[in-house]
């Protein structure tokens, strides 16, 4: 990153020297391994020290086929994993990529989840709600929480998908004591229903047992996150969400991911935002903007 400072020579009267570096350079990385996660999602592995935190994302460029923001499924330290679903032009092409192909990776980008409360103390009991592809960052956050000393029994990992075939990473946290709650819309796996019903039950049960859930985290479709946020507000629980907006550049320049009315860019000042910020962002759960910048209602 940049270094701003005075000229080091004491006798030198010249004014401030600003050293500039490229804040988010693109790295061309080789695909080391590809795994099929479910009927629609493939995982791509790259050997590269990304130094990411749960909630951050990368811009992925497939030469000749475009560039898109992607969440980071898992950061192993020396390598990282992206779980990519075939949902659009770029991701469809990416899913055809082979081991040994090169892709451009820029990042990690954006803000990340914090495991502290508003008094900067480590949280004790948390609920993580992931819908669809939000499962990756939520699982990463659960793993980080355990590393930081949270008891697995105090972590509720709630993850939902439309059907069994589309579930992601539900085995990742099995066997380490985290409370894993799975829902499918059609009941083909786990409980039939929606994540929000499970969250309500988790919160109610915790209250019965006189346990306070300190913070709720969520990544997934916006209206699901809005419902999660509403539960958090109703129960007076701290909350962090991942507010995704149409991103063209991912590095704070083009302005397509700017939210109303704060003007903040969800690729730089977001995508992970806390309770106070969510309150200010009046468009949350109401509308987003398309590639032209026009509003699209939810």
């Amino acid at each position: 990153m940049k270094k701003d400072g005075k000229c080091e020579k004491q006798e030198c009267k010249c004014s401030r020297i600003v050293e500039l570096a490229d804040p988010f350079p693109m790295h061309m990385l080789k695909i080391e391994k590809i795994e099929q996660e479910n009927s629609n999602v493939k995982s791509f592995y790259f050997r590269h020290k990304l130094n990411s935190q749960p909630g951050q994302f990368v811009m992925v460029w497939l030469p000749g086929n475009g560039e898109k923001p992607m969440s980071i499924a898992r950061d192993y330290g020396d390598s990282f994993q992206l779980a990519i679903a075939s949902v659009g032009n770029v991701s469809n092409k990416l899913c055809c990529a082979k081991v040994g192909d090169f892709v451009g990776i820029r990042g990690p980008l954006g803000t990340y989840f914090s495991l502290t409360d508003d008094k900067a103390k480590l949280v004790k009991s948390i609920a993580l709600v992931g819908g669809g592809y939000g499962a990756g960052p939520m699982a990463s956050l659960a793993e980080l929480a355990i590393k930081k000393g949270l008891k697995p029994a105090n972590i509720h990992y709630i993850v939902g998908a439309r059907t069994k075939d589309l579930l992601l990473f539900h085995k990742r946290l099995e066997g380490i004591g985290v409370n894993v709650h799975i829902t499918t819309d059609d009941g083909s796996f786990g409980a039939k229903g929606r994540v929000i019903d499970v969250l309500n039950k988790v919160v109610t049960d915790a209250k019965k047992n006189k346990i306070k859930i300190d913070k709720i985290y969520t990544v997934g479709p916006e209206l699901m996150m809005k419902a999660v946020y509403d539960v958090a507000m109703r129960e007076n629980i701290d909350c962090e969400i991942s507010l995704e907006r149409y991103m063209k550049c991912g590095i704070g320049v083009c302005g397509s991911c700017i939210v109303d009315p704060t003007g903040e860019r969800m690729c730089i000042e977001g995508p992970i935002i806390g309770k106070e910020k969510i309150k200010q962002i009046t468009e949350f759960g109401k509308y987003h903007r398309d590639a032209t910048g026009n509003k699209v209602k939810y």
Partner: peptide, 17 residues
């Protein structure tokens, strides 16, 4: 209204964008 070009729309290095 214009959608503009598809990404990548920006590429950078230390000398400029």
């Amino acid at each position: 209204p214009r959608k503009g070009h598809g990404s990548p729309i920006i590429v950078t290095n230390e000398s400029g964008m």
